[in-house]
Nucleic acid binder design. Structure first.
Lengths: 245, 245
DNA sequence: ACCTGAACACCGTTCAAGT
DNA sequence: ACCTGAACACCGTTCAAGT
């Protein structure tokens, strides 16, 4: 019983950080004293430079000129650190979004904003998909939801459509992030990577994998962004088209 | 130059394991001597019982009654071990698929097969999305591709559509896996988890998150599988509907 | 209140040495 | 060829002790 309520208490904190609930900020901000914000900025620096494996409490405390234990005064654990770093970046992305005219164009702009952000910060792709329903996901969910509503989708169908769009975006983003990190770890670039996949797929068993083989040749020259947007348009067409029954 | 070719060589091995290229198996299979297959089965056992964190080379070698070093004779590293475990499960899932009549029904069956597999083995969700273009992904990609072709989609549009379906499936699966593992780690069940998210969302700032708030109440009672299939149907409607221009 | 840094309990991986 | 197990170079996290 007590166990249960403690756990629920923890889950309850989802999205309860200051930036989502709108509270006055404490005004103290001394020189270079440690703070949650400084820790998050330094974490992003490490993640961008060296990937998810590059963020450790030791390198982080070194960069911040302190001890590993000091960080735990401001942040509960590594998971919270990753989510907070992710949230900071997503918040910036959503603020800087290009605005479209129609709801469709706005949905495309939101999707492309996330896509490009993940391309720029590959570590974010895997963190985002593991974020359960924490704040970074809500920051994406909300504006998509508003546009789906603006599209005139009936109330009862909005939830499913918004989650579908979000899932697609996170799925593409997660895979892209994995590919980018794979390539970076091996020290190869995008075209070398795609060339290798293409060549591997074209050598698959012709009886068992005819489709994959037939598509292999298209891999090296395709445009990730164009394909991603084509998928968004596919879903948008599905939204517009009448439901059976 | 040498560096480059070595790296490409590694990437080149994507999908090159025996089961994909169809080679004769070596017939030796002594008592309980260590083998790649035995290692993979034991890994799945640990992953299912204790999650991704439960698979370590120490616990694994203990279960196999050997030393940690012995495993490295059969498997290169932990990443390969995870991919191989994932691949074994996906292969079984694809073999046991319920067959549909129409291409649409077959696509739904494939998608639902993956969805249920991830629900049964949450660790698989995150591994699958990080699998780049390795064999487990091709096992899913291929049958979807055949059905998209059977749907009469023109050659030039098949790739994008198949990747869209795959991305959606992986996106839902990855999020579901994260939610399930989150709940399991806290020792709470699905309904406690959703209740907590719902309550957190309903307390978001009304000016900034009106849509998320409006949806909060629907979370505890929704059916994951139904929603997932509704998303698949959304994409299927998009495929059927005519492209503009 | 906030920071220090040694210490704890782990990891994945390597490798000389065995059979 | 295949296995052993100690050793290496790390991890995240804790906590007594400081200021």
């Amino acid at each position: 019983m007590e166990h249960r309520s403690i756990n629920l208490g923890t889950a309850f904190q989802i999205c309860q950080d200051k930036s989502m609930v709108k509270k006055a900020r404490s005004p103290k901000r001394r020189d270079n004293s440690l703070s949650r914000d400084r820790i998050i900025e330094a974490s992003i620096e490490l993640l961008d430079s060296y990937g998810e494996r590059g963020l450790t409490f030791r390198t982080l405390s070194e960069l911040l000129e302190t001890g590993p234990g000091a960080i735990y005064w401001h942040i509960a654990n590594k998971g919270e650190l990753l989510t907070a770093a992710c949230d900071a970046i997503v918040a910036r992305t959503m603020k800087a979004l290009l605005d479209g005219v129609t709801p469709e164009a706005k949905i495309r702009a939101i999707a492309l904003g996330i896509f490009d952000t993940i391309a720029a910060h590959p570590w974010l792709g895997s963190v985002l998909i593991r974020a359960e329903f924490h704040s970074p996901l809500v920051r994406i969910f909300e504006p998509i939801g508003r546009q789906v509503r603006a599209l005139g989708v009936p109330d009862g169908e909005q939830r499913v459509i918004v989650f579908s769009l979000l899932s697609y975006i996170l799925g593409v983003g997660g895979q892209n992030a994995a590919n980018l990190q794979f390539a970076r770890t091996r020290g190869i670039d995008r075209s070398d990577f795609l060339e290798a996949v293409s060549s591997a797929w074209s050598q698959l068993d012709p009886d068992e994998y005819p489709f994959a083989r037939s598509i292999a040749g298209q891999l090296p020259d395709h445009d990730d962004r164009v394909d991603f947007l084509a998928g968004i348009d596919l879903i948008l067409r599905g939204i517009r088209s009448p439901r059976p029954g």
